[in-house]
Amino acid sequence: MKKIVAVALVLVALMPSFNPGKQEFDTFILVHVKKNLHLEKGAFGDQVVSFLGPALIDQMSSRKDCFFFSFYTLRLPRHPPRYFLGFLHIFLPV
């Protein structure tokens, strides 16, 4: 029983280091956009999205840090906000 408690305490102590940052979320969204637009790597469209995308996504997204995990909001023009939960470097739509 003591070993299980010790392992649980170590995992809880390490969890904040696995809380993804805003940069990781922005990269996640950029990859998702490129995939949905079916852009081939190195094509003109891919280069345009790679150049302009990060700045636009940074302006349209926000993060609320909750220590062990984070809530992200993506506000696209003319669309309702989309919410994501980020933990252990994974992003899940909420």
Rank of each mutant, 00 (worst) to 15 (best):
L30Q: 07
S61H: 07
R75A: 12
L9P: 06
V48I: 15
F44M: 11
G45M: 12
Y72L: 12
H89V: 10
S62N: 09
I90V: 12
L88N: 08
A8R: 03
F28I: 13
F84G: 00
S62F: 03
S61D: 09
F69E: 03
K22D: 01
K64M: 09
K34H: 05
L88H: 07
L30M: 09
H89M: 10
P16A: 05
F28W: 07
G45E: 05
V12W: 09
V12P: 00
N19V: 04
M15E: 07
F67E: 03
G86S: 10
D46F: 14
T27E: 01
F68H: 06
L14E: 02
L39P: 00
P20Y: 05
V5W: 00
R82N: 04
Q59H: 12
F91A: 10
P77M: 07
S50T: 13
L76P: 00
F69T: 05
L92H: 04
V10I: 15
L88I: 13
I57D: 03
P77L: 04
S17G: 13
P80Q: 14
F25L: 12
F51N: 10
P20T: 13
L11T: 03
C66W: 11
G21N: 13
L39W: 03
I90W: 02
I29D: 00
D26T: 12
Q23Y: 11
L85K: 04
K3M: 11
F87S: 08
L39E: 07
M60G: 02
I90H: 04
Q47I: 13
L37R: 07
M1C: 06
A6T: 11
L88W: 15
Q23F: 12
Y83A: 01
V94S: 02
S62Y: 02
G42D: 07
C66N: 15
F84Q: 00
Y72I: 14
K2H: 08
F91P: 05
I4D: 05
V5C: 00
R63M: 11
I90F: 04
T27W: 01
P16Y: 07
K34T: 10
P80L: 15
F84S: 01
K22I: 14
L76S: 04
L76Y: 11
V33P: 00
H79R: 14
Q23P: 00
E24C: 06
L52D: 05
K64W: 02
A8Y: 07
R82S: 05
R78T: 15
L92D: 00
H38I: 11
H79Q: 14
P80N: 10
R75C: 12
D58A: 14
M1F: 08
P54K: 08
L30P: 02
K64T: 15
F51C: 11
L9N: 09
D58W: 04
L14V: 13
F18H: 03
T73I: 09
K22M: 10
K2A: 13
Q59P: 01
L92R: 09
G42L: 10
D65M: 07
K64L: 10
A13V: 15
K64Y: 04
H79M: 14
V94F: 07
P81V: 11
G53D: 09
P81Y: 12
Q59G: 10
Y83D: 01
M15R: 03
F69P: 02
L88D: 04
A55T: 14
T27D: 01
A13E: 10
L74S: 01
L30W: 01
L14H: 03
G86D: 07
F18I: 05
A8V: 03
R82A: 09
H32K: 15
P93R: 08
G86M: 08
